[in-house]
Each structure stands twice: as C-alpha cells, then as structure tokens.
C-alpha cells in the first residue's frame, strides 16, 4: 500500500492564511434559508376553529380555544339574529413545539404560518407559552 506521511500538512499550512470556517453566530446574524421552519404564527381572523392542527400536532403544543370577547350577535334587517363568525384564540407552547410545521400544512384556511424567528430561548418558562389573541 502506498504511504505518504504528512499528507495533510500543505492543507494545514494553507489554513494559516485563511479565515476560520466557524460561524460567529451570536455576534453575527445567522444565515437562514427561506423556508426555514421556526416559530409558528397565528392569525385570529382566519381561524375557523376546526382544530385540525390540534389533531395532528405530534407534541400537543398547540391549543385552539374560543376567544373571551366574542362579537355580539347582531339583529339583521329581517329581525332575526345574523350568523356570526366565532372567534378563536391560539395557545402555542414553544417549549413543546418541535417546529415540524405539520399544523401549517393541515390548516384549511392558512391561519397558521411559520416564521423565520428562531431565537426563542427564554429563562422563564411562562414566556414560552404564547397566547395569540385578537
């Protein structure tokens, strides 16, 4: 078998004049590709409360609850109460979320969407429980 000692030396010496490959992340902004899955955003207006997201969430991180302040039923011109769209809020437990974005995919009304917001570490556990409301 061919043997060549010190084969890596030229490469190693070349590195002396190059910048390190390490990314200086906390000091420089991290480069993300479009489509990186981070925090899931929720739009109250779009949600119809089908709770499909709750059904597919692998870690039971998402919770859809009826909003506290529902719109008052209004009386239509014919004297009957008009049908009113119920409003739903979303509780997102970031400590449980695994950022698979399956909820985004299953949502029929596109009320959920992933963002590029990935710096989510918190010292207090309470702050990891996001409450999206109207």
């Amino acid at each position: 078998m061919k043997r060549k000692p010190m084969r890596i030396l030229p490469e190693a010496l070349k590195q002396l004049f190059k910048k390190p490959a390490t990314s200086k992340y906390p000091f420089e902004k991290a480069k993300l590709y479009a489509g990186y899955r981070a925090r899931i955003n929720f739009e109250v207006e779009k949600c119809i409360g089908c709770k499909m997201c709750m059904r597919v969430c692998p870690s039971k991180a998402i919770e859809i609850i009826p909003a506290e302040n529902q719109p008052q039923p209004q009386i239509g011109p014919d004297g009957k109460p008009m049908p009113v769209k119920k409003i739903f809020n979303c509780i997102m437990n970031l400590d449980r979320c695994i950022y698979c974005a399956q909820c985004v995919e299953i949502c029929p009304k596109k009320a959920l969407a992933y963002t590029q917001d990935f710096e989510l570490a918190q010292i207090e556990k309470k702050k990891l429980r996001l409450h999206y409301k109207n």
Partner: peptide, 11 residues
C-alpha cells in the same frame, strides 16, 4: 491557537 487555525477553527 496555531493548531486551531490550522484546523480552520477560531481557537
């Protein structure tokens, strides 16, 4: 430090 730079690290 030299070893790190040779390995393309910060050190």
């Amino acid at each position: 430090k030299i070893c790190a730079v040779m390995q393309n690290r910060v050190g």
